[in-house]
Amino acid sequence: MIKAVIVDDNPDIRVTNKHLLAEYFIEVEVVGEADSVEAAYNLISQTLPHLVLLDIELKDGTGFQLLQKLTPYSFKVIFITGYNQYALKAIKFHAIDYILKPVNATEFREAVQSTIDLIEKDFSTHDQNEQFLQNFSANVGPSKIVLRTIDALHLVKISDILFCKNDNSYTTFHLSSDEKIMVSKGIVFYEEILTESGFFRPHQSYLVNLRHVKRLDKADGGYVILDSGDEIPISSRRKKSLIQLLENL
Protein backbone atom coordinates (compact mmCIF):
# COMPACT_ATOMS: atom_id res chain seq x y z
CA MET A 1 0.00 0.00 0.00
CA ILE A 2 1.30 3.43 -0.95
CA LYS A 3 0.36 6.23 1.42
CA ALA A 4 -0.31 9.53 -0.30
CA VAL A 5 -0.99 13.06 0.84
CA ILE A 6 -2.55 15.80 -1.27
CA VAL A 7 -1.44 19.39 -0.59
CA ASP A 8 -3.35 22.06 -2.50
CA ASP A 9 -5.11 25.22 -1.42
CA ASN A 10 -7.95 24.67 -3.86
CA PRO A 11 -10.38 22.12 -2.40
CA ASP A 12 -11.86 21.32 -5.83
CA ILE A 13 -8.47 20.33 -7.18
CA ARG A 14 -7.96 18.13 -4.13
CA VAL A 15 -11.27 16.41 -4.92
CA THR A 16 -10.26 15.87 -8.56
CA ASN A 17 -6.88 14.45 -7.63
CA LYS A 18 -8.36 12.20 -4.97
CA HIS A 19 -10.96 11.01 -7.42
CA LEU A 20 -8.39 10.28 -10.14
CA LEU A 21 -6.10 8.48 -7.68
CA ALA A 22 -8.97 6.31 -6.51
CA GLU A 23 -10.08 5.58 -10.04
CA TYR A 24 -6.72 4.63 -11.52
CA PHE A 25 -4.45 3.60 -8.65
CA ILE A 26 -6.00 1.05 -6.36
CA GLU A 27 -2.69 0.58 -4.53
CA VAL A 28 -2.63 4.21 -3.41
CA GLU A 29 -4.41 5.33 -0.25
CA VAL A 30 -4.90 9.02 0.45
CA VAL A 31 -4.14 9.39 4.17
CA GLY A 32 -4.71 13.10 4.42
CA GLU A 33 -5.12 16.48 2.77
CA ALA A 34 -3.72 19.89 3.60
CA ASP A 35 -4.10 23.42 2.22
CA SER A 36 -1.17 25.25 3.80
CA VAL A 37 2.54 24.82 4.50
CA GLU A 38 1.91 24.55 8.21
CA ALA A 39 -0.92 22.02 7.98
CA ALA A 40 1.01 19.99 5.40
CA TYR A 41 4.10 19.96 7.61
CA ASN A 42 2.14 18.54 10.51
CA LEU A 43 0.25 16.07 8.34
CA ILE A 44 3.39 14.72 6.66
CA SER A 45 5.26 14.51 9.97
CA GLN A 46 2.45 12.43 11.42
CA THR A 47 1.47 10.19 8.51
CA LEU A 48 4.91 9.66 6.87
CA PRO A 49 3.50 9.22 3.34
CA HIS A 50 5.35 7.72 0.38
CA LEU A 51 3.90 10.14 -2.12
CA VAL A 52 3.00 13.82 -1.91
CA LEU A 53 0.95 15.61 -4.53
CA LEU A 54 2.12 19.15 -3.97
CA ASP A 55 0.78 22.41 -5.29
CA ILE A 56 3.39 25.17 -5.71
CA GLU A 57 1.28 28.11 -4.55
CA LEU A 58 -0.12 27.49 -1.08
CA LYS A 59 -2.10 29.64 1.34
CA ASP A 60 0.83 30.66 3.53
CA GLY A 61 3.78 30.06 1.25
CA THR A 62 5.05 27.74 -1.47
CA GLY A 63 5.49 24.02 -1.88
CA PHE A 64 9.26 24.57 -1.99
CA GLN A 65 9.18 26.15 1.44
CA LEU A 66 7.37 23.08 2.71
CA LEU A 67 10.03 20.80 1.25
CA GLN A 68 12.82 22.91 2.68
CA LYS A 69 11.20 22.59 6.08
CA LEU A 70 10.93 18.83 5.73
CA THR A 71 14.47 18.20 4.43
CA PRO A 72 15.77 15.50 4.53
CA TYR A 73 12.73 13.58 3.35
CA SER A 74 12.32 10.27 1.60
CA PHE A 75 8.85 10.55 0.11
CA LYS A 76 8.41 11.23 -3.60
CA VAL A 77 6.84 14.42 -4.87
CA ILE A 78 4.58 15.15 -7.79
CA PHE A 79 4.15 18.87 -8.36
CA ILE A 80 0.83 20.31 -9.39
CA THR A 81 1.18 23.70 -11.02
CA GLY A 82 -0.83 26.28 -12.89
CA TYR A 83 1.32 28.63 -14.88
CA ASN A 84 4.71 29.12 -13.30
CA GLN A 85 7.40 28.92 -15.98
CA TYR A 86 10.27 29.43 -13.59
CA ALA A 87 9.22 26.69 -11.20
CA LEU A 88 8.37 24.38 -14.06
CA LYS A 89 11.85 24.70 -15.49
CA ALA A 90 13.45 23.70 -12.19
CA ILE A 91 11.08 20.76 -11.86
CA LYS A 92 11.90 19.57 -15.37
CA PHE A 93 15.59 20.03 -14.70
CA HIS A 94 15.45 17.59 -11.83
CA ALA A 95 13.24 15.06 -13.59
CA ILE A 96 10.52 15.44 -11.01
CA ASP A 97 7.06 14.51 -12.20
CA TYR A 98 4.49 17.21 -12.50
CA ILE A 99 0.87 17.78 -13.44
CA LEU A 100 -0.47 20.92 -15.07
CA LYS A 101 -3.76 22.43 -13.95
CA PRO A 102 -6.47 21.78 -14.95
CA VAL A 103 -5.64 18.14 -14.51
CA ASN A 104 -5.62 16.02 -17.63
CA ALA A 105 -6.42 12.38 -16.84
CA THR A 106 -3.81 11.00 -19.24
CA GLU A 107 -1.04 13.23 -17.98
CA PHE A 108 -2.08 12.53 -14.42
CA ARG A 109 -1.88 8.78 -14.94
CA GLU A 110 1.52 9.06 -16.61
CA ALA A 111 2.95 11.26 -13.88
CA VAL A 112 1.66 9.21 -10.97
CA GLN A 113 2.64 5.94 -12.61
CA SER A 114 6.13 7.24 -13.21
CA THR A 115 6.51 8.20 -9.58
CA ILE A 116 5.02 4.92 -8.34
CA ASP A 117 7.66 3.17 -10.44
CA LEU A 118 10.29 5.06 -8.49
CA ILE A 119 8.74 4.01 -5.20
CA GLU A 120 8.39 0.40 -6.23
CA LYS A 121 11.94 0.23 -7.53
CA ASP A 122 12.95 1.93 -4.26
CA PHE A 123 15.16 4.47 -6.05
CA SER A 124 16.65 6.93 -3.66
CA THR A 125 15.76 10.44 -4.69
CA HIS A 126 17.82 11.95 -1.93
CA ASP A 127 20.49 13.50 -4.17
CA GLN A 128 17.84 14.67 -6.58
CA ASN A 129 15.87 16.39 -3.83
CA GLU A 130 18.91 18.02 -2.37
CA GLN A 131 20.03 19.32 -5.73
CA PHE A 132 16.56 20.61 -6.46
CA LEU A 133 16.20 22.53 -3.20
CA GLN A 134 19.73 23.86 -3.41
CA ASN A 135 18.97 25.18 -6.85
CA PHE A 136 16.05 27.06 -5.36
CA SER A 137 17.63 28.49 -2.25
CA ALA A 138 20.94 29.47 -3.86
CA ASN A 139 19.12 31.23 -6.68
CA VAL A 140 21.91 30.40 -9.13
CA GLY A 141 21.76 28.31 -12.27
CA PRO A 142 21.89 24.57 -11.69
CA SER A 143 25.22 22.80 -12.10
CA LYS A 144 23.71 19.32 -12.39
CA ILE A 145 20.80 17.81 -14.20
CA VAL A 146 18.82 14.72 -13.25
CA LEU A 147 18.38 12.17 -16.04
CA ARG A 148 15.93 9.40 -15.44
CA THR A 149 16.23 6.12 -17.27
CA ILE A 150 14.34 2.90 -16.88
CA ASP A 151 16.76 1.58 -14.31
CA ALA A 152 18.31 4.58 -12.59
CA LEU A 153 18.33 8.26 -11.71
CA HIS A 154 21.53 9.85 -12.96
CA LEU A 155 22.78 13.05 -11.44
CA VAL A 156 24.92 14.46 -14.23
CA LYS A 157 27.19 17.49 -14.15
CA ILE A 158 26.13 19.79 -16.92
CA SER A 159 29.75 20.47 -17.84
CA ASP A 160 30.23 16.74 -18.42
CA ILE A 161 27.66 16.62 -21.20
CA LEU A 162 29.19 16.83 -24.68
CA PHE A 163 26.04 16.75 -26.74
CA CYS A 164 22.59 15.17 -27.01
CA LYS A 165 21.25 13.28 -29.99
CA ASN A 166 17.64 12.92 -30.85
CA ASP A 167 16.25 9.62 -31.92
CA ASN A 168 12.48 9.42 -32.39
CA SER A 169 11.16 10.69 -29.03
CA TYR A 170 14.29 9.51 -27.23
CA THR A 171 17.33 11.55 -26.39
CA THR A 172 20.80 10.14 -25.90
CA PHE A 173 23.24 12.08 -23.74
CA HIS A 174 26.90 11.72 -24.74
CA LEU A 175 29.14 12.44 -21.78
CA SER A 176 32.84 13.31 -21.69
CA SER A 177 33.46 10.02 -19.90
CA ASP A 178 32.27 8.26 -23.05
CA GLU A 179 29.19 7.15 -21.13
CA LYS A 180 25.86 7.37 -22.97
CA ILE A 181 22.53 7.84 -21.23
CA MET A 182 19.27 7.38 -23.11
CA VAL A 183 16.20 9.14 -21.79
CA SER A 184 12.64 8.74 -23.02
CA LYS A 185 12.02 12.43 -23.67
CA GLY A 186 12.32 14.43 -26.89
CA ILE A 187 15.23 16.74 -27.56
CA VAL A 188 12.96 19.82 -27.50
CA PHE A 189 12.34 19.15 -23.80
CA TYR A 190 16.07 19.41 -23.08
CA GLU A 191 16.65 22.25 -25.50
CA GLU A 192 14.16 24.30 -23.51
CA ILE A 193 15.82 23.76 -20.15
CA LEU A 194 19.48 23.65 -21.21
CA THR A 195 19.66 26.72 -23.48
CA GLU A 196 20.26 28.90 -20.45
CA SER A 197 23.12 26.62 -19.38
CA GLY A 198 25.05 27.26 -22.60
CA PHE A 199 23.60 24.67 -24.96
CA PHE A 200 22.77 25.19 -28.60
CA ARG A 201 20.83 23.18 -31.10
CA PRO A 202 22.75 23.42 -34.40
CA HIS A 203 20.65 20.76 -36.02
CA GLN A 204 17.19 19.19 -35.67
CA SER A 205 18.76 16.11 -34.11
CA TYR A 206 21.55 17.59 -31.99
CA LEU A 207 21.91 19.70 -28.88
CA VAL A 208 25.51 20.78 -28.21
CA ASN A 209 27.22 21.96 -25.06
CA LEU A 210 29.04 25.08 -26.25
CA ARG A 211 31.74 24.58 -23.59
CA HIS A 212 33.03 21.63 -25.56
CA VAL A 213 33.06 23.25 -28.98
CA LYS A 214 36.60 23.19 -30.36
CA ARG A 215 36.00 24.83 -33.72
CA LEU A 216 33.64 25.23 -36.65
CA ASP A 217 34.34 23.42 -39.88
CA LYS A 218 32.67 25.36 -42.67
CA ALA A 219 33.14 22.71 -45.32
CA ASP A 220 30.12 20.81 -46.57
CA GLY A 221 27.49 23.13 -45.09
CA GLY A 222 29.41 23.18 -41.82
CA TYR A 223 30.23 21.06 -38.77
CA VAL A 224 30.81 21.75 -35.12
CA ILE A 225 33.97 19.93 -33.99
CA LEU A 226 33.98 19.05 -30.30
CA ASP A 227 36.93 18.51 -27.93
CA SER A 228 36.18 14.80 -28.12
CA GLY A 229 36.52 14.85 -31.88
CA ASP A 230 32.81 14.36 -32.47
CA GLU A 231 31.47 16.17 -35.56
CA ILE A 232 28.00 17.66 -35.34
CA PRO A 233 26.28 18.89 -38.53
CA ILE A 234 24.97 22.45 -38.69
CA SER A 235 21.67 23.32 -40.28
CA SER A 236 21.96 26.31 -42.63
CA ARG A 237 19.17 28.04 -40.69
CA ARG A 238 21.17 27.87 -37.47
CA LYS A 239 24.59 28.80 -38.82
CA LYS A 240 24.24 32.53 -38.40
CA SER A 241 23.04 32.49 -34.81
CA LEU A 242 25.64 29.86 -33.87
CA ILE A 243 28.48 31.98 -35.21
CA GLN A 244 27.07 35.00 -33.38
CA LEU A 245 26.80 33.04 -30.17
CA LEU A 246 30.36 31.69 -30.37
CA GLU A 247 31.74 35.15 -31.08
CA ASN A 248 30.05 36.49 -28.00
CA LEU A 249 31.35 33.71 -25.76
Binding site: T16, L100, P102
Partner: peptide, 16 residues
Protein backbone atom coordinates in the same frame (compact mmCIF):
# COMPACT_ATOMS: atom_id res chain seq x y z
CA UNK B 1 -17.77 13.26 -15.98
CA UNK B 2 -14.66 11.65 -17.42
CA UNK B 3 -15.40 12.96 -20.88
CA UNK B 4 -16.10 16.42 -19.49
CA UNK B 5 -12.86 16.42 -17.57
CA UNK B 6 -10.88 15.18 -20.52
CA UNK B 7 -12.44 17.72 -22.83
CA UNK B 8 -11.78 20.50 -20.35
CA UNK B 9 -8.12 19.63 -20.00
CA UNK B 10 -7.73 19.59 -23.80
CA UNK B 11 -9.25 23.05 -23.92
CA UNK B 12 -6.96 24.20 -21.13
CA UNK B 13 -3.97 22.95 -23.05
CA UNK B 14 -5.08 24.81 -26.20
CA UNK B 15 -5.75 28.06 -24.38
CA UNK B 16 -2.37 27.72 -22.69
Amino acid sequence: AVKAADYLSKFASLSR
